[in-house]
Structure formats: structure tokens, C-alpha cells
Computed example of a mutant assay.
Amino acid sequence: MTDENFSRFDVHTVSLRSAHFAGSVEDHETSNGAIMIDLLTLLTGLRADGETYQIAVSEDWLQGRTTFGGLSAAICVESALRQYADLPPLRSAQFTFVGPATGLLSVRPAILRQGSSTTFVGVDLCGAAGLATRATLCFGSARSSAIHHPPVMAPQTPDRELCQPFFDSRAPLVTQHFDCLRAGGALPLDGSPNPNYQVWLRHRGSAPQSITGLVAVADALPPAALVLSKTIAPLSTVSWMIDVLTDQLETSDGWWLIEASADNAADGYSSQAMTIWNASGRAVAHARQDIAIFI
């Protein structure tokens, strides 16, 4: 978000390997006349230049003075997948947002270490002001194991048809790339003492139904700490990570259920945990995020 509304709350990922897509519209126009370029279309502009990739991001994917964090992360993952075609599934990813991602973006993936079952890839995304995002990605093949413990099932929520929109007119333009429904908990700027909410979320328009599509949508929400405030404040994600619990990333009509809970908010920072389930209630990812709050 921009500094004038919910501020710079971020989003993150994308792979064009999948032939399955949610939606069919390449771009659409908002009520105020802005043209929205969907995720799939935007990523066709990611072009290789030797070992580096370049991409220009359209204004509808900006939050304040930087590229939407989820998109920056998506570009990092997509560049790794394109550079190294035989990577196993993504198991874990960490993203540190060092500075603003503006202008023509340059992305450089590099293998840090490759073992018998896991490959670590580092990705630096740079903009006009220098390094913007640094990613560390762990790709790993599945292995037989005697250890098994099922993840927590999804909370009970109303049917999606009964849920109201989560975003309101104060949300930044980039949120119009997503359909988002309130499934439970509080709302940003409620002033509630319980910084927790659940939402149904999916891409609007064409997007890969893959790990990269999931990462992109997983960071589309404002920090849960905003529930504690009644005052709009500038926000900025410092770091974001996601652990992928399965390589079976399937859901119904593109919908994912996401719960976000702030563990702590003090000294200008907030730490939060997130869980993502598919439409059948199966957990597919856990995530954590550290946010700087300027209020």
C-alpha cells in the first residue's frame, strides 16, 4: 500500500511451468479506469540476458514507491526455475526486502549448493537504487521417511458465498489483482485487541496454479498488526519466509484460505505467522513475516 492508505503492505511468487491457470482475462480495467495487467501476462516480460533476467513492472503492481513485495519474490522464484530447469519442488524460501524495487529490474539467480536431494539457489533482484530483494530458495526432492505428523486442519469458516469483501476503498491499487473475502477474525484498523484474521484469497485474472502462483498470493494481505490500530500508518515488510508442506498444490477455483496472526508488536516492528490451506482444508504452507511499522 502507499503511505496514504494501508501503506506499503506487501505481496510475493510465479512459475510458468504449469499449464493450468486461474481465470482467463489477460488484463482488466478497474472502476477508476486503471488498466490491470495480470500476473501471467506480466511475467511474459521476464527476459533472459545471459545469466541475468530483466523485467519492467507496470504501475498497477507498485505499492508506494516500490514493486509489490509478492511480485518481487515471484520474480526471484521464476528466474531460478527458468535458469535451472531440473530443480525439484520448492520446499522453503526466505526473502529480505533491502530497498525499493523501481525502474527496470535485473534478477540474477545462482546455485549456492547442490546435494543429492536438495539444491539451494540465491537470487538478487536489483532496481534503479541497487539491491532491492535478496532471496534464498531451497528446492528438495521427496524422500521416503518413517516420520509423519499431519499439519493442522483449517478452521471452520462460513461458505465463501456468505463472505463479504475483505479489502475496502482504502486498500492500494495492487489489491485489485486479487479476490479477497473475509472468513473470520478482525479487520485492519478495527482497533481490536486480537490481531488475527482469516480470508479466502485468489488471483484475479490469469495466474499459474503452481508454487510461484501460491507465493504471489500468499503475501497479498496487510499485516495482522493493523488490526490493533484505528489509524492508517506506513508499513514495510522487512523479511518474509514460506515453508511449503506439500508438492501437491491443488485447490478449487484458485481459492486459498489464509490465516494471519501477529505474535508481537513493539518498538516499531511486528512479527506474524501465517498458514495457508487449500479449499479442501489441507494445509499447504506456513509463513512468517517481520514488518516495520511507522506509527
Rank of each mutant, 00 (worst) to 15 (best):
H20D: 13
G268S: 03
L189A: 10
S210I: 02
A279Y: 08
Q54H: 12
D267A: 14
V217I: 15
A34F: 00
L226R: 10
G70L: 09
A135G: 12
A73N: 06
S270H: 00
D86H: 15
L105K: 10
Q248N: 15
V152G: 02
S116K: 15
T275E: 05
V152Y: 05
A132F: 05
D263C: 00
I111P: 06
I293S: 02
S271K: 09
N5F: 12
G50W: 02
V174K: 05
F68Y: 11
P222Y: 06
L62Q: 12
D168A: 12
D243R: 13
L71V: 12
S116A: 15
P222Q: 05
F9Q: 06
A224E: 00
V123I: 14
E29I: 14
A154W: 00
L201K: 08
G130W: 12
S192M: 04
R82Q: 12
M274Q: 04
A285S: 10
C138L: 13
D60W: 11
H203L: 07
V77W: 00
S271H: 11
V215F: 11
L40S: 14
N5G: 15
A129I: 05
V77I: 11
T118Y: 08
T133C: 14
A146W: 07
D3V: 15
I276K: 06
R91V: 01
V174N: 04
A265D: 08
E26C: 04
G50N: 10
P150T: 04
D49N: 15
H28L: 10
L105G: 09
R8A: 14
S229Q: 14
V57C: 08
S252V: 13
D159V: 13
F68T: 03
A74N: 12
E259K: 14
V199R: 09
L221N: 04
A266N: 11
P89Y: 02
P195H: 03
P109A: 02
W200H: 07
V215R: 02
F21D: 00
S18P: 00
P165F: 14
C138D: 07
L257I: 04
A171L: 09
L40T: 10
T212S: 02
S106C: 03
L181N: 04
A48L: 11
P223A: 09
L228P: 02
N32V: 07
P172Q: 10
V227T: 07
R134P: 01
Q272F: 12
P234N: 02
L62V: 03
S7Y: 13
Q272D: 02
M274C: 03
Q156L: 15
D168K: 06
A34C: 01
R202P: 00
M274A: 00
